[in-house]
């Protein structure tokens, strides 16, 4: 306590002038940045970039988004679709958890059908299935297509190149619809460098699995899910350079700088789809921040996926 008083006395008494000097220096220091900002010449100012204007400039189809999975029903999807100018969302509810029995996947598809009814102008459902139940899956695909769903979304029950998938892929070829498969490139997952086994989802499809099935069915169309989903996107894109029937969507919670440019450099401008995987800010931000031309951005946000839809006559005008 006495120390404290001494110290205060010291400041009040003996060192007034020094303290005053320090204060005024400090004040001057505070003023300085203001002066500095004020003195930026016009020529040296940054250009005025209007981000929301850029966001709204592009029509968008979200090729990878979920409802009733992470963040509630379709109201949330629509709120973000409005906020970020997303015209159409291809919503899905894959067998993310549970066994993926026919009962389960039918109920998931029913949920998506309900979403479509609720927002018929904005939401289109991707149907899900489980190739382990081959007969039931094929029947379910027919049911869903008849009810207006477009495209297959599948998960980690089976690898994409498992022979049980063959009849389903052949069906999708007939339908001229894309097969959208959850995918990863992570050390120790799904057969990729298993000395680092992380012990999860052993049947996750990895880039090599896509390459194998894409070679077997060159007329099929595959969508490798979320290169921004946390995996090694360089590894992924480098794997697909020579396989034109594999497309990638840019969704996922990760938005590394240079991912979009790098993917475009490796895969060309026709094989990238905009997608959010419900990570809405990143989904748009990563594409706007890239060095893509306006035309390329249009393709990624809208035209590329629409071209896929066109093959089955489901394109958006």
């Amino acid at each position: 306590m006495s120390n404290f008083i001494n110290r205060r006395k010291f400041i009040a008494g003996s060192a007034l002038s020094a303290a005053g000097l320090l204060m005024s220096e400090h004040t001057a220091g505070l003023n300085k940045p203001e002066n500095q900002i004020a003195s930026i010449s016009n020529a040296n100012r940054p250009s005025s970039y209007n981000l929301m204007k850029e966001v709204m400039k592009y029509r968008k189809i979200d090729s990878h988004v979920h409802a009733h999975l992470f963040d509630g029903g379709p109201e949330g999807n629509i709120a973000f679709a409005d906020r970020l100018g997303i015209d159409k969302m291809f919503v899905s509810r894959p067998a993310y958890n549970g066994e993926g029995t026919p009962k389960e996947f039918r109920s998931y598809n029913d949920l998506m059908l309900d979403c479509m009814k609720q927002y018929p102008d904005r939401l289109i459902g991707q149907f899900t299935a489980n190739a382990i139940y081959q007969k039931e899956s094929l029947e379910e695909i027919k049911r869903c297509v008849d009810l207006g769903m477009v495209g297959l979304k599948v998960y980690t029950q089976l690898k994409i190149n498992n022979p049980l998938f063959y009849p389903i892929i052949e069906k999708m070829i007939d339908l001229k619809m894309i097969i959208h498969m959850h995918a990863y490139a992570q050390l120790g997952l799904g057969g990729y460098r298993m000395k680092y086994d992380v012990g999860i989802r052993p049947n996750t499809s990895i880039p090599e699995d896509f390459v194998e099935i894409a070679k077997r069915y060159p007329e099929a169309m595959f969508q490798y899910a979320h290169i921004g989903g946390g995996g090694d996107w360089e590894y992924t894109c480098k794997s697909f350079v020579h396989y034109p029937n594999i497309y990638v969507d840019t969704s996922g919670s990760n938005n590394p700088e240079n991912m979009i440019d790098s993917a475009m450099k490796l895969l060309g401008e026709d094989r990238l789809f905009f997608g959010s995987d419900n990570c809405y800010y990143q989904s748009v931000g990563k594409i706007l921040a890239s060095n893509l031309t306006e035309n390329q951005k249009k393709k990624v946000f809208f035209d590329n996926y629409n071209a896929i839809l066109r093959r089955s006559g489901n394109n958006i005008d």
Binding site: P207, Y235, T236, K238, S239
Partner: peptide, 8 residues
């Protein structure tokens, strides 16, 4: 040589 695309 154990990384994607190395031959290219």
């Amino acid at each position: 040589p154990i990384y994607a695309g190395w031959r290219d």
